Amino acid sequence: MVTLKDIAKKCGVSVASVSKAINHMPGVGAQTAKKIRETAKSMGYLPNAAAQALKTNRTFIIGVLLEDDDSHGLLHQFFVSVLDSFKFKMEEQGYDLMLMNRTVGKRTISYLEHCRYSNMDGVFVACIDFSDPELLELADAGTPMVTIDHTYPGHPSVYSDNVDGIRKAVRYAHEKGHTRIAFISGAPAGVTNKRYEGYEGMLKELGIPVREEYYKVSRYRDVKLTKELTAELLTLPEPPTCILMPDDYAGLGGLAAIREAGLRVPEDISVIGFDGLEYMAHISPRLTTVYQDVKRIGEAAAELLLKRIDNKEKDTPAKSIKVPVSLIEGETVVPPQKS
C-alpha cells in the first residue's frame, strides 16, 4: 500500500506537504501541489476517506438535488448537462457527488437530515420545486449551497439570461417578417416570469400588440401539453405565424401538432425552441433555438460553491451569475406566407 511517506520521498518534499496537497489545504505552492497529486495518482495512492475527514473537517461530498415534478430530473438533458460540467469541476478539486433523497434505508428523512447524516460539505440544487418547505429548511440551515435558476437569500446562484433569450427569439422572428408571434411558456416560476418579461417587452419595443390569446402556459419538458396548446393556437381565427416553445424537448409536441394539422414547418408556420439541446440539431428541419451555455453554467456553479465551502466569501453578499445566451439559426424560421 502506498503511503504519504512514499509519495514524499518520490517528490522530495515533507510528509506534511504531501498531506496538505492531497487535502487541498494551503501552505504548498500551486505547482508543487499539482506535482504531488499527479505523483500520488501515478503511484495508485487512495486516501482513506474517514482519516481525510478528520484531518480536514471535510468529507469532500457534495449533495445533488435534481428532481422535476415527475421525479425525472436525471432525464432532463439540459440540467444533466449542467450537472456534468459541475461534476467535472468539482472532481478536479477532489470532491465526490451524491444524489440526495428523502430516505435512508427504510427511514424517511428530510433533505437537511440527509445532508447532516452524510456530512455533506455543500449542495447543488437544480430542476426542483424551490418552494418545497424541506428545501427552504436546508437553505436556512446555513449549509453551503448553489442553485440553478433560483436564488435563496445568502446563497449563490447561476442562471441564463432568460430575458435576453426570449428577446433574441422575438427579434429574430420579427426580422424574418413575423408580427403574429405566440409564446408557450413553462409553468409559473422565476425563469418563466423572466422569459415572459422578455417576450412582452420585445413585442412592445417593436410596436407589436401583446395579444392575450397568443400566450399559453405549459410545463417544461411536457410534450403532451405543449402539443395540445399548439393545436389550440392553430385553431384561432387568426393563428400565429411563429410559435416560441417552452424548451426544445417540449417543442417536439408542438411540431407534432403542426404536422397533424396538415401544416408544414417552416413553410406554413415557424417555430423557435429554447435550450439548444445537441440532439435537436439532428432532426429535420433543424430547430432554430436559444442556446444556454451548460458548460459555463456548471463551471460557474462549482466555482461559487467552492468559494462558499472555503469561506472565502463568507462575509460578502452571495453572488448571482447571469450567463449570456445565443440564438442558433436552424431551419424552422422563414418569412410568413402572405395572406
Rank of each mutant, 00 (worst) to 15 (best):
K176Q: 15
A139F: 05
P246C: 10
I328W: 01
L65V: 14
A8S: 08
L136P: 01
D149G: 06
P156H: 09
D164R: 14
G276S: 02
T192A: 12
S14H: 05
T288R: 00
A139Y: 02
S326D: 09
G105M: 06
S339F: 11
V13C: 08
R116W: 04
T103A: 12
L244K: 01
V170C: 08
D315V: 08
P209Q: 12
G198S: 07
F78L: 15
T289E: 00
M245P: 03
R167I: 03
G105Q: 05
D132W: 05
H174L: 10
D140P: 03
M1Q: 15
L112P: 02
S42Q: 15
A257N: 07
I109Q: 05
N57E: 15
T288N: 03
M280S: 09
D222I: 02
V18S: 03
E329G: 00
Y172E: 13
L234W: 00
R171L: 14
C242H: 00
I62K: 00
S218P: 01
D129N: 11
E212K: 10
V64Q: 07
F183K: 01
V2D: 10
G142Y: 08
S185Y: 05
L75M: 14
L66E: 09
V265M: 07
E175L: 14
D129Q: 05
I184K: 01
A318H: 05
I283H: 04
D68C: 07
P237F: 07
Y95F: 13
I148R: 01
F183N: 09
T179S: 14
D268K: 01
P239G: 09
S284P: 00
S81R: 08
N193A: 15
L46C: 13
K87Q: 15
D293A: 05
A231C: 09
S110H: 07
Y159L: 15
R102F: 13
E38T: 07
M98S: 11
S14F: 06
A173S: 10
Y196Q: 15
V294I: 06
T147E: 08
V333A: 01
T241K: 01
H178W: 10
K312C: 12
L234F: 00
E228C: 10
R286F: 06
T241A: 07
K168M: 14
D247A: 05
P239H: 04
E67R: 12
D68A: 07
N23D: 13
E197L: 12
T32D: 05
V265Y: 04
A126N: 03
D248F: 02
E92L: 13
V123S: 03
Q337A: 13
E267C: 10
G298P: 02
G207T: 03
L97V: 04
G122R: 01
T108E: 15
S42K: 14
D140H: 11
L225F: 05
Q77R: 12
I184M: 08
L75D: 15
K5V: 11
L252M: 14
H150A: 11
D161Y: 03
L138K: 03
L112M: 09
R58M: 12
T32I: 07
M202K: 08
P239F: 02
K314V: 12
L236R: 00
R37E: 13
S320F: 02
S110P: 03
Y199A: 07
A40P: 02
L135D: 10
T289S: 04
A30V: 12
T32K: 08
G254N: 07
D129L: 02
H114A: 12
A141Q: 10
